[in-house]
Design a protein around this nucleic acid. Structure first.
Lengths: 142, 142
DNA sequence: GGTCATCTGCAACGCAATTGCAATAGACCC
DNA sequence: GGGTCTATTGCAATTGCGTTGCAGATGACC
């Protein structure tokens, strides 16, 4: 790995860290980049599987996820399968709370659904997040 | 322990098992009785802690919880702490079918919502469970 | 380039959930 | 009541997520 290049290559992610008063490290940039490149929330396990190939330790992935989530750069959500998933929060993170997730009981993947897929009657509370558990289309058809 | 007495003493629980074509065993009756005596859903750990004192193995508790839940005698729900909890379903368990629940991010309590509170567009998959996260009415008003 | 707090890798642990296997107990028939 | 056969149980072990201690490496800052 070439730490210097990794750092130089992500000015945007770097500034995110600096704004929160967090140290800019190769590992943190890698975590942010991986989550930013994913279209769906990732678990620590999924992310670690990906990042250990670069020599990063699973515990380091874990601790960085904690730090970044605490700094509100990531959203940490326990999905209905009991596993925490993390996603990058763009600008205050409003956009990502609005679409429902489906956690597939067969393949385990988290699918983001279009916002209008689920409608919640008003007056029940301030609903921030909608999670479904079931079988996704791919698994039903397979 | 006196297996014979345990069995003879629970005609109602016994018939529940027989109706589902399940074998009536001392251990199953003990699990049903313990859950029936509890006012709140219990985790496998809590139940096992209680039942190991009678010589039952934790794995046996676990497998019976699975069997009984599959037979719809119990409801198995993953609570927001990530741990499954089990409760006895009275009268066929129809009431507990597929109602959404709201996990309050403020007070942490789980509120059961009426089934019609959430509608899911068909064709997205086979939805088994609906979980909302947000603030419950009590916290909004408090 | 030096200093010091923070971060990282390595190793290990706790707990919930799960399974294989051999011994046991329940259901059923006589 | 005794025999038979399968489901159940106890024991032991494993997986996987989440988490932490510690010693060495690295980043921030001067």
């Amino acid at each position: 790995m070439t730490p210097e290049r990794s750092k130089a290559n992500h000015p945007r992610l770097r500034s995110l860290l600096e704004q929160r008063g967090l140290r800019v490290t190769v590992r943190r940039l890698a975590v942010l980049q991986a989550l930013g490149a994913s279209r769906r929330p990732l678990s620590h396990g999924e992310l670690a599987d990906e990042l250990v190939t670069t020599g990063m330790d699973r515990a380091t992935v874990y601790r960085n996820l904690m730090v970044l989530a605490e700094a509100k750069l990531l959203l940490r959500t326990r999905m209905p399968d009991g596993i925490f998933r993390f996603e990058l929060l763009r600008q205050g993170g409003r956009a990502h709370k609005l679409h429902p997730y489906l956690v597939c009981t067969e393949c385990g993947q988290v699918r983001c659904l279009p916002r209008q897929a689920v409608s919640v009657k008003p007056g029940l509370g301030d609903v921030l997040e909608v999670q479904l558990r079931g079988r996704c289309l791919a698994c039903l058809q397979g």
